[in-house]
Design a protein around this nucleic acid. Structure first.
Lengths: 227, 227
DNA sequence: ACTATATTCTAATATTCGTTAGAATATTAT
DNA sequence: ATAATATTCTAACGAATATTAGAATATAGT
């Protein structure tokens, strides 16, 4: 009986240490950033709003749990997620947290739903509309993240360039903006800005982690992208 | 910029505290046990091999993360998972851990594959075979867990009763045993015992958490059960 | 070889977590 | 009421975590 217990303990211990690798706000954010594209420690630290030293420490934890891996490229270490299931785990955790935490749901609503900024269409409907040109789908993340991976039919217009590139967007037709995911503010800001300018703009709250996991589950290539 | 950061921090903090609720071997085991059926603190403690006090403390953490909830029934507190997604989270974590951890994969193999005890069929194939009577599917968990939730066409033969009920099993046809999940030893023991007695026995490694999450995703009622 | 840059390692801190023991609470049975 | 049982709360302590600062390492460019 004790041998059996020891084995069971070991198995759950293994799962536990993997979950522990994700059991931290900063590490979750780092993983979400790495779902966008492989990134250097420096970039990750700055985008997550923490010191390089702390980012390095968190990345070490993630590496230890085999959730991310890195390769040296010149003088930087470029990190990436080890497999699509890591994105799936993040998506699952985010979804479960939204279900279980009133505070989280409330905070998310305050950002978006207050102004009915988002579109209620599901993934396939949205992509079909984009394919048929019924809507203009814009990716407001930095260009390198678009290059790494993006939704099909999407146009890359990074937030920084948005005000300078309004001419590329149609005035009478819906414009749907997406960014890194539901916790990223880019697309909400883009939609606010575009509405101010008279565009029929909406936000699409899914991001790279969501597509990667959906893509992996459906075994079909949902999104495009080089590198 | 700081306001945005504070909000993002808060959102990831919420997800983090949910993940932290699951980031412990004993809590994972307690959740897996609660996927079988609602249980009292006493039962949980004894089945997980820990003291009642410690079980109570872990259950408090899980309750705080809204992963489980409890109702008083007479003089006992009966705990249960709050929603099917909790099972989904456990299954995802187990799966990712198996992918990422060589040690875990190795340990699991040592239990089962060494003797080729398991069947390679997928869920639907197995259930169809059971439906057509080509195999005999037996549930070797305690009777109350069978009563709470079980696979269709399955026969309840708890481990304790197995040796006394061999007459109910066919000798020429495959007998497939399942239990609480891949980390539970009941079905492996059952198969070893049955093979010793000359039966054509196999193990099916999925358990309640797996069915609950599959069932929830497919939106179809895969399994039966009262209460 | 020398310098600058990017990253990791080491050490130190405060904080949180896991565990155990003892006291306290709530319910049922008498 | 009183006793018995099941569970939770409080306190305590060692172990693990998050964070910061300073030293060390590895690569690229001169």
């Amino acid at each position: 009986m004790t041998l059996r217990r020891a084995l069971k303990d070991m198995l759950y211990e293994q799962v536990g240490s993997l979950v522990k690798g994700m059991a931290n706000a900063k590490r979750l954010e780092l993983v979400e950033l790495l779902c966008q594209a492989p990134k250097s420690v420096e970039t990750l630290a700055s985008e997550a709003g923490i010191s390089i030293k702390l980012a390095s420490a968190h990345l070490k934890e993630l590496r230890l749990a085999h959730l991310v891996e890195a390769d040296r490229q010149g003088r930087q270490m470029i990190y990436r997620i080890t497999c699509p299931e890591v994105a799936g785990f993040l998506v699952m955790a985010r979804g479960l947290a939204r279900n279980r935490s009133f505070e989280l749901r409330h905070a998310l609503q305050e950002i978006t739903a207050s102004a009915a900024l988002w579109t209620a269409a599901d993934d396939q409907t949205l992509l079909n509309q984009a394919k048929r040109g019924e809507i203009t789908l814009i990716d407001v993340r930095p260009a390198n993240e678009f290059a790494a991976r993006h939704l099909p039919y999407a146009l890359s217009i990074p937030m920084m360039e948005l005000s300078a590139r309004l001419a590329e967007l149609p005035l009478g037709k819906p414009v749907v903006a997406y960014c890194r995911g539901p916790f990223c503010s880019f697309s909400v800001e883009a939609v606010r800005f575009l509405r101010d300018k008279g565009f029929d703009a909406f936000q699409w709250p899914a991001g790279a982690a969501d597509w990667i996991s959906a893509d992996h589950e459906s075994e079909s290539a949902l999104f495009g992208g080089a590198a």
